[in-house]
Each structure stands twice: as C-alpha cells, then as structure tokens.
Design a binder for these strands. Structure first.
Lengths: 338, 338
DNA sequence: CTGTTAGCGCCTTCAT
DNA sequence: ATGAAGGCGCTAACAG
C-alpha cells in the first residue's frame, strides 16, 4: 500500500494541511516544518495520489486526445510533439481512437469528460461538425488539427502553404520546366488546405506567364491515383515535364506508376511532393518535397491548449507560424544544363 | 456543471445508494426504483465521474503505456491494437514516451502509479533491467513488448520466428538459389529475437545441404547498412544470389544501395525482408517479406494485462501464437525457369 | 504559520 | 430492497 498524506503528516508530526502546503507550495510553511515534511516524504517514498487531487480540483492533469488512426505516420509524429511538451508541463495524454467513426468521436468526448481531462485535442482527416458542437458544449478547452482542413476559429498553427507552394513551383520553373501540372486531392477543395497549395501553384504559374494544368484525385491511396493514370499520361503527352503534387503520397504513387510504364523519374519526368514524412527518407528516388514538422504542429497545439487551461491569454497575434523549407533532392531534373 | 449521483437520487426520489446500485448493477433493486433511476439518468444526461470512482476503487480504468518513441511505425501499429481492445473493455490508454531514456522510464512508472493505472504496458526496443525491477515492485500487472528481445517470463505473444524464417529460406531455395546470405542486426544477438530467425535460416540451409553466409550489421539505419556495403559486394562476387534479411529496413537499405551501384533487384539479386510494415506497401520493388501483425501483438498484450487485472487465470498453455505468413511479392527472382 | 473541518463524487458496509 | 453513514486521499476555506 502506497503511503498517503496522512502517513506523512503523522511521521512529520504536523497536520495534513501543512503537508499539503509544502507539496503544493501553496502557502507559507515554517522552515522547520517543511524540513520535517520533506524528510518524511523521502522516507516514506510518498507521492501524492493524482486521482484524489483530480477529484477535488475537478480537473485532472490529463489531455484527452482523439485521433482517427494512431497507426498513421503523421498522426504519430504529431503525438510525439504533444507528448513531449505535455510532459514538460506535467500533463499526460489520454489517447483514444475513433477510426473515423463520427458516432464514436462523440462518445469519446463524453468519455474524456468523465475522466475529467483538462482539455481535448483532436487529430483527424475529416471535420466532424457534430464533434465540434459537442466539444463546444463540453466547455473544455479544445483544438483540432486537421491534415486537410483548416478550422479557422480553432486554428492551431499557421502553415504558409501558399507561400511555400509558390516557392516550390518557382523552384521547378527555375530548373527550366515550362509546363508544370499540379496534382491534388480534390475532395472538398474549397474547405481544404489543398486550396492554399493550389493558390501558390497558380500564382507562380501566372507570374511566370505559363499555363495551368490541374489534375484532381479522389484520394491519396494507390487506387485513387491509379484512377487518374490516364490523365497523367495525357498530361505527359501534351508536354508536361513536371508534376507538383500536393502530398508525398500522391507523388510516390505516381512515380511508382510511371516506373511500371518505363518512365523514369527524374530522367523523363520531374515530380515534387509535400509533407516530408519518414517514407520520403527511405524511398528512392529521394523525393524533392516540402518538409513539414509534424512534431512542431503537435507541440504548438498542446502548448495552446495548456494556455487555455491556465487561462493565459493566447494572443491572437501570437499565432505560430511554422517554418517550412523545400527539401531539394533527386526528383526534379535540371533542364537548363543539358 | 455536470450532474452527479446526488442529482439523480433526488430526481428519482431514492437514495444515492440505490442509484449506485443500478449503475453498477451490484445489488438487486426493485423494478420500480430502477425505472425511476434510469429515467432520471436519461433526463439529466448523467454519467458517473470516473475520477471519483477510481478514488474509491483505488484503481482507474486506465492502462499506462510506456513507449520509447510513439513516432515509430511499428509502435503505433501495436498501439492501435492496444487501444481498440482496451476500449472494448472500457479501458483507456495513458500514453507516455521515454525516448529511450532509462531514467525517464523509471519516473514514468512512478507517474503511472500516481495516476492509479490498472496495469502497465511497455513497448520498447531495448530492455531496461531497472525498469523491469521497478515494475515488479509496483505490484501492478505489466507486460513488455520488445521488437528485438524476448522477455521470457513476461512473454506476451509467441511468434514463431524460427519456423517462418525456415519457410522463407526454403522458399528462396525453391526458386533455385544456391547461395543465400543472411543479413541480421548483430547487437546482442544471443538475447535477441534475431537468433530465432538465424536458427531458421541455418536449419533451412543445412537441410538443403547449402553453405551459410552471414553478414552482421550494427543497426538498421541507412548508415549501419552502408557500413557493411563492402561485405555485401564481396558476397555477391562470391556467388551469393539472394539475401535473407531479418528486418524490412535492412532489406530496403540494401536494395537502395545496390541500385546506386547499378545492381537491380530482383533481376540481379534477390532479397527478402521481415516485418511487413507500411513502408513495404509503397516501396518499389514490392518486397517479399514476412508479414507481422503488430496490431495483433498489441491486442493480445492488452488482453493479457486485462486478464491479470481481473485475476482471470492466464493459462500458460494459452500463450497466443501469432499466425505468420510469407508475403510473396517482387524481390525474389525465380532462377529455375530461365 | 498551523490545525480543524468540510467537502470533491462515489462505493460499501451496516442496519433496517 | 433500501437508506444512512463512513471513508477513499486530497484541497481549501476558516479559525486561531
């Protein structure tokens, strides 16, 4: 049986309030009493019971996290940031998965409320309006991180998608490419982050006086990309020499497809990705891509939730901007120096 | 403010004990009273405060999970299983990361104890003896899943590494390969699971009257594999036509290396992996490998912890054996039919 | 500065 | 079958 505050009080010959005061540093305690308490704590190897604390404070040092699939690479990277920063502030992660089921997500909020979490972080691919409502009415601080969508109001980290896309396309242009196609996940583009990437692409193309060429996919799975296979071929036939893909997965699936057809990247066709996930570290050819630090996204998000919990003012101006950079590797051919 | 058991009691015009009885189904309650309580619960949208419960029961419905790095693919896959099965039994996951720091791991156990977790699951690459001691003295049910090592006593899932390795090598042999090298992570082989894979390899090679050829690496990073580059070359020069790698990562790094040298897989050299992680789904050529269901590993582990918590007898015989199969894809060339 | 007291929300004997 | 009462371990007034 672990020792309790009572045991400590007894051994230190003080009241439990005094003990409470020293462990919480909440009110002044005489040096002598403090010494004795500390001593007793050490001897008894006492650690406060967090559950009892949570009960009386009506708040646990727990952050509820709802993800759609923990097995996804970028989700787990985000979690890394969440966990590490959370730990710094003595907050732990209560992890739950919804597997994309909206019903489940709602239930999870309930569950997390029962566990008295201090705040909730949602990491998902799709926006679940009902979930947001539920979160709102829970009165708990919450944030949503979405791979595709922006939740303008509950914004976590500003990522300059447009700017970096603009840069990337310009980079491709600088390598002598005259006809560059964009390949993006079309579902819900208007609400999706994809639109920023598209804007960047369009701006770069327009600035350079080139012509747009856009290919829309239904998703980022191998199958979804296979469905636009014909369009890719057509694009190439029409003179497209480079594909600006809005996600690494799209880029890699295209490269695989092209390879099957005997078309080589970058020798015959150039391609860029977006995301810079682990995959791109080991996949060959090494993809030229935009490296997003998912860790940072998670870190910033949790930090903001903690601020909300502690009611620190989260300055609007202070919206973190995530630094992005192009990782120039092997999939863009320089057409100038031939 | 969420409603409490008191509110329910008042509305149902019964005592809180009765309410407690119906929500826990712990003692007989008259149909009438039960009806009224249930009604009140519905009206008030009451859910029991888990924290208060945990305090009384001295046990939360939480499983503490200590991982070395949540960002690792196989770790997150295991967690998926843990989460899903845990949820089925109303247990949640308290996730913590140690980043491989042994000191931190010890602290985490303390922390989890404070939070009154019902059991602890450790998912790590290295065995931390001190951690195991600490876990032992915590008196909490615990289990350890290790990618490389077996913890014989605290075994979770029996994986027939030797058997499947034997099969895999025989498969390679059946394709007409006469000189097959094994490439394995050598660190601590004697205590590592690698030894079983090696045994399988050796047995298959011996049975077929062939000659062993073993290459040891220091790790599974790109760098570690680059260090044995010369040995790989030498092996090929000496007539090796296939490499049986004990981990996907090793296999893929070797393929990348060979490609840089203009050696093609499987045209020139055949290679097999082990693990069947996501990576192998998107990487080309599609790796012939042994598919391990990390999900199942997690699922079985959590199931056993739950059994320990509920003091169900965990039959020794019942040691789950994970079904394994060879995923035959594109990296083994058939030398027979030329 | 310190001790006493009253809960936090719930479960659990113990009577009735 | 039901209610009253005590307590889980801790914090937070409230007196002193």
């Amino acid at each position: 049986m672990a020792s309790t505050i009572k045991d400590v009080a007894k051994m230190a010959e003080v009241s439990i309030s005094t003990v409470s005061r020293v462990i919480n540093d909440s009110k002044p305690v005489s040096p002598e009493a403090r010494r004795r308490v500390l001593q007793a704590i050490k001897v008894l190897d006492y650690t406060p019971n967090e559950v009892a604390r949570s009960l009386v404070k009506r708040k646990s040092h727990l952050i509820g996290v709802i993800v759609d699939d923990i097995g996804t690479s970028y989700v787990s990277k985000i979690l890394r940031g969440v966990e590490e920063i959370g730990r710094m502030y003595n907050y732990d992660i209560l992890l739950t998965c919804s597997y994309g089921d909206p019903e489940v997500e709602i239930d999870l909020v309930k569950l997390l409320e029962q566990k008295q979490v201090g705040g909730i972080l949602v990491i998902a691919s799709n926006v679940n309006e009902k979930l947001l409502e539920k979160l709102e009415e829970s009165k708990l601080p919450y944030l949503e991180i979405n791979r595709f969508h922006d939740n303008e109001e509950k914004l976590t980290v500003r990522i300059e998608y447009e700017e970096i896309s603009y840069e990337m396309v310009n980079y491709i242009i600088s390598k002598g490419h005259k006809k560059i196609a964009a390949v993006l996940k079309a579902h819900d583009v208007e609400k999706s982050q994809e639109r920023y990437k598209l804007k960047g692409y369009e701006r770069a193309i327009t600035d350079a006086g080139l012509e747009e060429y856009i290919i829309s996919t239904k998703g980022i799975t191998e199958k979804a990309i296979a469905e636009v296979s014909d369009q890719i071929d057509k694009a190439i036939k029409s003179g497209v020499t480079a594909f600006f893909c809005t996600l690494d997965e799209i880029a890699i699936h295209i490269i695989n497809q092209l390879r099957d057809k005997g078309i080589k990247v970058p020798d015959d066709i150039s391609i860029t990705g977006f995301g810079g996930t682990d995959l791109t570290e080991i996949y060959r050819p090494l993809l030229t891509t935009v490296k997003i630090s998912y860790y940072d996204i998670g870190a910033v998000a949790i930090r903001r939730i903690l601020k909300m919990i502690n009611k620190e003012n989260t300055d609007e101006d202070e919206k973190s901007i995530l630094p992005l950079g192009i990782t120039k590797r092997d999939t863009v051919k320089d057409l100038n120096q031939k």
